[in-house]
Simulated scan of single mutants.
Amino acid sequence: MNNVMNIDGHTAVISFDPDLGQFRGEFTGLNGGADFYANSVEALRKEGARSLKTFLTVCKERGIDPYKNFSGKFVVRVPASLHARVSEAASAAGVSLNQWVQQALEREVRT
């Protein structure tokens, strides 16, 4: 399981690299790699802040948007039986399948 850490308003996924014996952080939502490593949580925060600052500075210097752009569309493949149950739940709730899934996703990311 991965954990998350907020560094200067940016989310980073944290995992442990057993080969290196260090924690590894990788920022999400950025338009490129800004990963970082450290041996402790405190050091990870410092390295993360340093990595993020460097990444944002380089993007600014090169005129690159540092953030990923999302279209708002994605395809999800689920078993047919789940598709049927979700469709029934949406109908019962009086909303479209898209609205039902959007509401479910919004509930999930709030937790």
Rank of each mutant, 00 (worst) to 15 (best):
24 R>Q: 13
29 G>K: 13
58 V>H: 05
91 S>N: 14
52 L>D: 01
103 Q>A: 12
90 A>T: 05
101 V>Y: 11
38 A>V: 04
10 H>C: 06
6 N>Q: 07
105 L>F: 13
70 F>P: 02
28 T>F: 13
30 L>A: 05
90 A>M: 07
74 F>K: 11
99 Q>I: 00
94 G>T: 10
10 H>T: 03
83 H>R: 08
66 P>C: 01
57 T>W: 13
81 S>A: 08
85 R>E: 15
30 L>V: 03
5 M>N: 12
78 V>M: 07
63 G>S: 14
102 Q>M: 15
88 E>V: 07
17 D>S: 02
80 A>M: 10
33 G>Y: 14
18 P>S: 14
111 T>Q: 08
48 G>S: 06
79 P>Y: 12
62 R>C: 05
104 A>L: 13
20 L>N: 14
30 L>K: 10
50 R>P: 07
13 V>L: 00
104 A>N: 09
51 S>V: 11
62 R>P: 03
101 V>R: 07
25 G>N: 01
95 V>I: 04
81 S>V: 07
51 S>M: 08
111 T>Y: 09
83 H>Q: 09
98 N>E: 07
103 Q>P: 09
96 S>T: 14
67 Y>N: 11
1 M>D: 00
50 R>S: 12
19 D>H: 10
55 F>W: 02
64 I>Y: 02
8 D>H: 12
74 F>D: 11
99 Q>E: 11
99 Q>P: 00
16 F>G: 05
3 N>W: 05
101 V>P: 11
69 N>Q: 12
77 R>T: 13
91 S>I: 15
80 A>T: 15
81 S>K: 08
106 E>M: 10
76 V>W: 07
60 K>G: 07
59 C>L: 05
2 N>S: 01
8 D>E: 15
44 L>K: 00
37 Y>I: 09
57 T>R: 15
16 F>V: 01
25 G>L: 00
31 N>E: 13
9 G>T: 10
109 V>C: 11
85 R>V: 13
88 E>R: 15
83 H>T: 03
105 L>D: 04
87 S>L: 15
43 A>L: 04
63 G>A: 14
104 A>Y: 09
9 G>E: 14
26 E>K: 05
24 R>V: 02
111 T>C: 13
5 M>L: 04
108 E>Q: 03
67 Y>E: 14
86 V>H: 00
18 P>N: 06
98 N>P: 02
59 C>H: 04
54 T>H: 02
44 L>Q: 01
101 V>W: 01
7 I>N: 03
89 A>E: 04
105 L>T: 10
7 I>L: 09
50 R>G: 09
100 W>T: 02
2 N>I: 11
32 G>C: 07
10 H>E: 11
35 D>R: 14
11 T>M: 04
6 N>W: 14
48 G>C: 03
90 A>Y: 08
72 G>I: 12
111 T>I: 08
104 A>S: 10
86 V>C: 07
4 V>R: 12
98 N>D: 10
